[in-house]
Computed example of a mutant assay.
Amino acid sequence: MTLDDAQAYCTALTKQSGSNFYYSFLFLPKARRNAMYTVYAFCKAVDSAVDEPPPGTQPQEELTRWRAELEAAYHGTPTWPITISLAHHVKALGIPKVYFEELIKGVEMDLQNNRYLTFDELSLYCYRVASVVGLICLYIFGATSARAQDYAVALGMAFQLTNILRDVGTDAAQNRIYLPLEDLTTSQHSEKALRRQTYSPEFIRLMEFEAARAHQYYEKARAAFNALSRQERRALTVAEIMRGVYAGILKKIEDSEFQVFGPRIRLSTSHRLAIAASIWLRSRFS
């Protein structure tokens, strides 16, 4: 497979995903956009190895294969479309391999844990499956200072906590509870009630607490962003578009009074595009 074929594969996979991130990628120059498509395709494929393993395969074995392909990508000998494209971009941008290794470890945690006793335990999971993706993206955006890393880590935490709130019902139906059990105890909302998707004052209290925690991370990210140089802030426009979209999802969850047991809460395509355009224009003319 040629590099162009591999890139086309990653691009098509990303476009088909319907991800909230896709609309922000459109604002990147072509070379950086292609890198984002490839990184997204890698993240999506590794996640699917656990959540949607190919028929006749075992998730742990699939992750072992992805680890081997990641090694091959960094040694110039990849054989899969995604890693052929990834090998090109990580070399061009200097993205450390350790971030991709951490991502795989994070996805692997879903094979080992379906409960988190404390927020400290959950934080490691969120860091691995979300914050490290942000750290990878910094190399694509061209802003890798310590303050930019603080921004990426906090924003990744905020994104993952938003995802957890939005998907709490579907996760519980699969016997996965990401909300810390200590928080369920404090809110007097039991695991059993969560698995039964019981909507109650206790559930609302639990969700309000978790939403407030997500807001804290959005605020940490905002503070870190404001401390960056103008050049770095402009480089992170795409990340800010992602922030706008995910903050919008969190607001919609709160506005619904946490009615997350029905259809998945999402923003319309027009709403996402409006957020993207607004933030892009502000970054260019502020």
Rank of each mutant, 00 (worst) to 15 (best):
Glu202Thr: 13
Thr162Met: 07
Phe258Lys: 06
Leu267Met: 10
Thr162Trp: 07
Arg234Asn: 09
Phe258His: 09
Gly134Thr: 02
Ile253Glu: 07
Tyr99His: 15
Glu219Ser: 09
Arg264Met: 10
Trp66Arg: 09
Glu257Ala: 13
Thr162Ser: 07
Thr79Trp: 00
Ser286Met: 11
Phe209Cys: 12
Ser286Ala: 13
Phe21Ala: 11
Gln149Lys: 12
Ala247Leu: 15
Ser200Gly: 08
Leu165Asn: 08
Ser283Asn: 15
Ala212Asp: 15
Ala72Glu: 08
Leu26Gln: 10
Phe285Ile: 14
Pro263Trp: 02
Lys30His: 11
Gly248Pro: 03
Phe27Arg: 05
Ser270Tyr: 12
Leu194Cys: 01
Gly244Met: 05
Asp4His: 12
Pro81His: 09
Glu52Ser: 14
Leu26Pro: 00
Gln197Pro: 04
Leu273Val: 14
Lys220Thr: 11
Phe285Pro: 00
Tyr37Lys: 01
Met1Trp: 03
Leu135Asp: 00
Ile279Trp: 06
Leu138Gln: 08
Ala35Gly: 09
Gly244Cys: 03
Thr2Cys: 02
Val238Lys: 06
Thr170Lys: 14
Ser286Leu: 11
Met207Gln: 12
Ala49Lys: 04
Cys126Asn: 14
Glu240Gln: 15
Pro59Ile: 04
Asp51Ile: 02
Gln112His: 13
Met207Phe: 12
Ala221Gly: 04
Leu228Lys: 08
Arg282Lys: 13
Thr269His: 12
Val39Lys: 01
Leu273His: 13
Ala221Arg: 03
Glu232Phe: 02
Leu181Trp: 07
Glu69Met: 09
